[in-house]
Design a protein around this nucleic acid. Structure first.
Length: 488
RNA sequence: GGGGCCGUGGUGUAGCUUGGCUAGCAUGCGGGCCUUGGGAGCCCGUGGUCGCCGGUUCAAAUCCGGCCGGCCCCA
C-alpha cells in the first residue's frame, strides 16, 4: 500500500519559480495544450484541450468587439506583392520576415504572393471600394486569423512562433479625434477581457517613435510580466492616421462636398501569447490554474468508491449532484473511470479545473459534498442544500483571487529609478522600472548595452517626468516617464 | 547576433567513448484479478524505419559529413 516516494517526486513538475522554462514545456505537453512535434520550425499544433481554452478566449474578445460596433470579416491569407509594397515604411519593417509563395503547381508565379504578416495591405484595397461617403463611416471590422512571420530569434511555443493566432481590427473614421478615441476604446476592450476575465495584468504604454509599428503614427502596447521577469507584448493598438488611406485611396465624400482621406486605426490581440500568459501567470507546481470562464470543464466530480459501499448508491448520488450543477449552467464532468482517486486529483489539477467535488461514502451518508478550489488548493465540506450557492460564490471568488494575486505580483516588481546604477542594484528584486528618458534611440541602445538587455518599452500615458528631470542615460532633458524591462 | 546541449516504442531514458549478441529499463496503452479520501499492487499482452540523407566498414543507434527539428545560456 505504501507508495514509492522517489517515483512520485520524479513525476512531479519542475518548480515553476526556479525552473520556469522547463515547467512551461512540461505543462504544455502534459496538459495537452500544444504539440511541438509538427516538424517545421516555429509552427505548432493546438491540441484539443489547448484549442478548447483558446476558443473560449477568442469568444470573449469577439463578444467585446461586437459590443463596440465591430463586425466580422475574413480576408485571404495571400497578399499580392505590389499591395504589400505600397506603403514604404510598412514594407521596410516587414520585408525580412515575409514568407513568399513563388510557385503554383508547376508554374512560377508572375507576381509573388505573401503570406500575410499582418493584414493592412490585404484589407485596405477593398476598404477603398467599400467607402465612398462619410455615411459609410465609421467602418469597424475584425478578423480572427493566423499570421506568418519568419522570425529569426529563437522560437518558443505560443510565445514566439512563425505562425501565430491573433485578432486584428481595422477601423476607419472620418476624423482624427474619432480615430484617437478608438485607441482608447481598444485599451478598454483589452482590459475588460485580459484583466477582468482572464486575470492577466498588463502595463499600457506608448511605444517610442523608433519602435512603433511600421507605417503607424503612434503605437500603444500592452505588456504583461512573466514569472521569469521578462515582459511580453500581448497586444498593440495603432493610430495609422492617413498613412495607409492615402496610398490605398481610402477617401470619402464629406458632408461639405469635399473629399477626405479616412483616419485609421488597427488593433492586434495576441491570442497565442495571451494563452501563454494565462498559463505562466496563474499556473503553479501542480499545473494550470484556469479562470472559470475559459475552463472547458468548470467542475469535475471524483467518486471515492469503497469496498462494501454500494457503487450504485454512490453513482446515483453523483448523478444527482452533477445534474443539479449542470442545471445551474456550469460545465460539469463526473469522472467515473476506473483510475484511482489520487491519480484523478493530479490529473485535473494539471488541467487547471477550477473546482473539484469529491464524493465518497461519507458524503453520501451525510448528504454533503467535499469541494476543492484549485486556485487556493483548499477543501470545504458543504451541505447539498447550499451547494449551488457555494459554487456561485466560488465562480466569483476564484477569478477575483487570480486577478488580485497576479496584479500584486506585477506591482511588487515595479521600482522607480533615477540612475542606471540604481537600476542595476535593484534588478535582483524588481523586474519593471520606471524612469525618466530623453526619447532618443541612441540612449535606448546605450541603455540596452550597458545594462545587459534592459529595453525602453515605451512611455506611460498618465505620468510625466518631474520638473527639471534628466534622462537616465545621457542626463539631457527628460521628455517622458518610461517603462524599462527585459523583454521576450 | 554569439555559445552550448540534445534527437532511441506514445512519454522519459540506457547503450554511443572502444562499431558486432534478440536495442535494455521505467512509464504509457489493451486484458485479467484486486484496490480506491493525493499518482496502489500482481499477472499476461502491446508497442522501435534508433530524426533524415549520404559516406567509411565484412558489419553502424554507435565513427565521419550535410540537412531537419527541439532545448538552454549569453547579447
Amino acid at each position: 500500500m505504501s507508495r514509492d516516494s522517489s517515483k512520485t517526486v520524479e513525476e512531479k513538475l519542475p518548480d515553476k519559480k526556479t525552473n520556469t522554462s522547463e515547467w512551461y514545456s512540461r505543462v504544455l505537453q502534459e496538459a495537452g495544450i500544444v504539440d511541438i512535434r509538427y516538424g517545421v520550425k516555429g509552427f505548432i499544433v493546438y491540441m484539443p484541450y489547448g484549442m478548447s481554452i483558446m476558443k473560449r478566449i477568442i469568444q470573449l474578445y469577439e463578444e467585446e468587439l461586437e459590443k463596440t460596433g465591430h463586425r466580422p470579416i475574413l480576408f485571404p491569407v495571400v497578399i499580392p506583392e505590389a499591395n504589400l509594397r505600397k506603403e514604404a515604411e510598412h514594407i521596410k519593417g516587414f520585408e525580412a520576415e515575409v514568407f513568399w509563395i513563388t510557385h503554383a503547381g508547376l508554374t512560377k508565379l508572375e507576381e509573388r504572393l505573401a503570406l500575410r504578416p499582418t493584414s493592412e495591405t490585404a484589407i485596405y484595397p477593398l476598404y477603398s471600394l467599400w467607402i465612398s461617403s462619410y455615411k459609410d463611416l465609421p467602418l469597424k471590422a475584425y478578423q480572427t486569423v493566423a499570421v506568418y512571420r519568419y522570425e529569426t530569434k529563437a522560437t518558443r511555443p505560443l510565445i514566439r512562433g512563425r505562425e501565430f493566432l491573433w485578432i486584428e481590427t481595422h477601423d476607419v473614421f472620418r476624423t482624427a479625434e474619432e480615430a484617437l478615441r478608438q485607441t482608447v476604446e481598444d485599451k478598454d476592450i483589452f482590459h475588460r477581457v485580459t484583466y477582468e476575465v482572464l486575470g492577466i495584468p498588463f502595463l499600457h504604454v506608448m511605444r517610442m517613435d523608433f519602435d512603433k509599428f511600421p507605417g503607424a503614427e503612434h503605437t500603444y502596447a500592452f505588456d504583461t510580466l512573466l514569472p521569469d521577469g521578462r515582459v511580453l507584448q500581448i497586444g498593440t493598438t495603432h493610430y495609422l492616421g492617413q498613412k495607409f488611406s492615402r496610398v490605398f485611396e481610402i477617401k470619402f465624400h464629406d458632408i461639405d462636398g469635399s473629399y477626405s482621406y479616412g483616419e485609421q486605426t488597427c488593433f492586434g490581440i495576441g491570442l497565442s501569447r495571451i494563452l501563454a500568459s494565462l498559463i505562466l501567470v496563474h499556473g503553479d507546481n501542480y499545473g494550470l490554474v484556469l479562470p472559470p470562464r475559459v475552463a472547458p470543464i468548470q467542475i469535475v466530480i471524483i467518486p471515492i468508491p469503497k469496498t462494501g459501499f454500494s457503487r450504485e448508491r454512490l453513482e446515483n448520488y453523483i448523478e444527482e449532484v452533477r445534474s443539479l450543477l449542470e442545471g445551474a449552467g456550469y460545465r460539469v464532468y463526473a469522472d467515473l473511470s476506473e483510475k484511482t482517486p489520487g491519480e484523478k486529483f493530479y490529473h485535473y489539477d494539471l488541467l487547471g479545473i477550477p473546482i473539484r467535488i469529491e464524493i465518497g461514502p461519507r458524503e453520501v451518508e451525510q448528504n454533503k459534498v467535499s469541494v476543492f478550489r484549485r486556485d487556493k488548493r483548499e477543501r470545504e465540506i458543504v451541505d447539498l442544500g447550499r451547494l449551488r450557492e457555494y459554487i456561485a460564490y466560488l465562480m466569483e471568488d476564484i477569478p477575483e483571487t487570480l486577478k488580485r494575486r497576479a496584479r500584486e505580483e506585477m506591482e511588487k516588481n515595479i521600482a522607480t529609478v533615477g540612475s542606471i546604477d540604481e537600476l542595476m542594484e535593484l534588478r535582483g528584486s524588481y523586474s519593471l522600472f520606471k524612469t525618466d528618458f530623453c526619447d532618443s534611440e541612441e540612449c535606448a541602445e546605450e541603455l540596452k548595452t550597458t545594462t545587459g538587455g534592459y529595453e525602453v518599452r515605451g512611455r506611460f500615458l498618465d505620468e510625466k517626468p518631474g520638473e527639471g528631470a534628466r534622462c537616465i542615460v545621457c542626463g539631457g532633458e527628460a521628455r517622458s516617464r518610461v517603462l524599462v524591462a527585459k523583454a521576450y
